[in-house]
């Protein structure tokens, strides 16, 4: 059974009278331990998809199974547990808490799980050393470079040893030099620790580390390429990868930054 199984997922955002359909019948399966790159033009629903996978949001329709659990059947407190324990989120804008030191930021997810202070501090330092910030534990986010901040965020995502790492454009705000170590780390998490890693990205380097690339457009999967090579030549792993592709309705398609994703 796949770790993640989405069938016919839709997500509507209601803005006054207009309804924005961010996802329109999306199908996706992800196996445990895979590195998946999700690509697609801006506004195609990548973040929306990530939020649903990460239990930050629930789909409007469709069936969404994560690790055998039906996401739509889960109560709020079960979703909270899921976010806290099973999933680690890395954001494009780091989203560290400015008033807290690097170590306290990493400890934060453990605080909400009620882990004892000593244990917490030990693990936080361990993780910061692992991401190469052993000498920055007392620094506040604004005393760190962008790359360092994202590494703190990586350490935070790993705090409760989650099975799934979700990274929404993790290198989007970084230059190649500081972005590459982040991508390497993500790759290693899959290879060494068997974690499932899902990366939203526009970055060809990121795509290169992926086992599969899922392409979205207008809230649908338009292609799934395996073997990490960007382009149209990939071998589809499922039979429904190009289904229902460009069924352009009026509310969407205007927000894209133009045409295709491989810019």
């Amino acid at each position: 059974m796949p770790l993640l199984e989405f069938k016919g997922i839709t997500k509507d955002y209601r803005l006054g009278k207009t309804v924005v359909r961010a996802l329109r019948g999306l199908d996706l399966e992800i196996e445990e331990g895979e590195v998946i790159a999700i690509m697609g033009p801006s506004g195609s629903g990548k973040s929306t998809l990530m939020h649903i996978v990460g239990a930050l949001d629930t789909p409007t329709d469709g069936t969404a199974f994560l690790d055998g659990q039906d996401l739509q059947q889960l109560k709020e407190h079960q979703l909270v547990t899921l976010r806290g324990k099973k999933i680690g989120f890395v954001f494009q804008t780091f989203n560290l808490i400015q008033t807290l030191s690097a170590q306290r930021n990493v400890e934060l997810p453990m605080i909400f799980q009620g882990i004892r202070k000593g244990e917490r501090a030990r693990r936080a330092r361990e993780l910061l050393i692992k991401v190469g910030l052993g000498d920055r534990v007392k620094h506040k986010p604004n005393e760190l470079s962008g790359g360092e901040r994202q590494r703190v965020a990586m350490a935070r995502a790993l705090a409760n040893d989650p099975e799934i790492i979700l990274a929404d454009e993790p290198t989007g705000n970084l230059d190649t030099e500081s972005g590459t170590p982040i991508l390497e780390m993500l790759k290693k998490l899959s290879v060494n620790d068997g974690k499932t890693v899902i990366i939203v990205t526009h970055d060809p380097d990121a795509a290169a580390i992926a086992d599969r690339i899922v392409r979205l457009r207008d809230g649908c999967v338009v292609a799934v390429n395996s073997c990490g090579v960007e382009g149209e030549s990939g071998v589809p792993t499922t039979g429904r990868d190009v289904e229902g592709s460009i069924n352009e309705p009026s509310t969407l398609g205007t927000t894209t930054e133009g045409g295709d994703s491989h810019a």
Partner: peptide, 8 residues
Amino acid sequence: VMKAVGAK
């Protein structure tokens, strides 16, 4: 952010 990392 706090809720995303597991705050109730």
